[in-house]
Nucleic acid binder design. Structure first.
Lengths: 159, 159
DNA sequence: GAAAATTTTGAATATTATTCATTAATCTGT
DNA sequence: ACAGATTAATGAATAATATTCAAAATTTTC
């Protein structure tokens, strides 16, 4: 296991703040905003990518546009072989599953899933979850409305 | 309330697939991949943005790099004034809160929160949640390990 | 099936990305 | 504190991409 040293200064934080708001901001703009040369920004961004501070750039797509109207969270109680997360990895492979978290207590996972509708969710539970033998039980929570959904991190001013 | 018509064809889906993987892919590359002119891609991407199919571009930042080691989900039971989501909106304002979902049953919200550690979580509950009078009770689930965490949507081949 | 609307193309221009030698700044060990 | 070593930033030159737009192609509409 590699111990990676992130060593971020205030300029890095500013770059990250900007990139969090709009990942397509170009180096020239960032440079202008921070009063630096574009080439310096390029260097820093590359370094942030290499150090795995920036993990990827993604486009946030409107789920409605793809007819994925239903968001659900499923608590899954499972009997993993000790010390493994076999079930977690199987869950992660399901395309409709956006998140899989190993949670404290109850030998459980919390899973976030998007489907077209309730029928799609039932399908998924039957066809995908149903194939995973180690699953003992599930409890599903339906989202009626999402008030906020971002992955932006809070980057405080000082450090 | 505007009824927006998304009208996406296979080319749009391909663009979205590419953009989901890497939001910084340039039009020239997309054009090459799809065998089209860059200017056509530009037009389509602009249109996807205007139609709110693409909502934003974000950089996924490693929470560890910002010392946000603890991820938690909090179920919040609250007494909103009927027909409002006052509590949801207040929750959404908390910077450490990444997601707020109004969930079925129990007059509840499900909230996703990142903090430095358990102490940070306690602080947040005391200082931020504590200020919201309408909250009746909370139940917190700590994430031990995240196996998968994306917001990519599943874009099936045919449509 | 023809007119209208939309989309694509391709070439020209503007802007940005990238490279790299030089300069500046920071760090290290004494 | 300082000299040498390392790291980072600059600025100018080049490569690549973004953007614009008139013309051509395609699709839609009735």
């Amino acid at each position: 296991m590699e111990k990676i040293e992130f060593n971020l200064d205030q300029i890095d934080y500013q770059i990250l703040r900007i990139m969090q708001e709009n990942a397509r901001t170009n180096n020239a703009d960032i440079a202008r905003e921070l009063g630096m040369a574009p080439s310096a920004i390029l260097e820093r961004v590359k370094k942030l990518e290499q150090k795995q501070v920036i993990l990827q750039y993604n486009a946030k797509i409107n789920p409605d546009a793809l007819d994925q109207k239903l968001l659900s969270f499923i608590f899954i109680k499972a009997q993993d072989p000790i010390g493994t997360q076999k079930v977690g990895l199987l869950l992660a492979k399901i395309p409709e599953v956006q998140e899989v978290h190993d949670i404290a207590g109850d030998d459980g996972y919390l899973v976030k899933v998007r489907t077209h509708d309730a029928a799609g969710l039932v399908d998924l539970m039957r066809n995908s979850l149903g194939k995973i033998e180690e699953i003992i039980s599930t409890r599903t929570t339906i989202v009626l409305e999402t008030v906020k959904e971002e992955q932006k991190l809070f980057i405080p001013k000082k450090d």
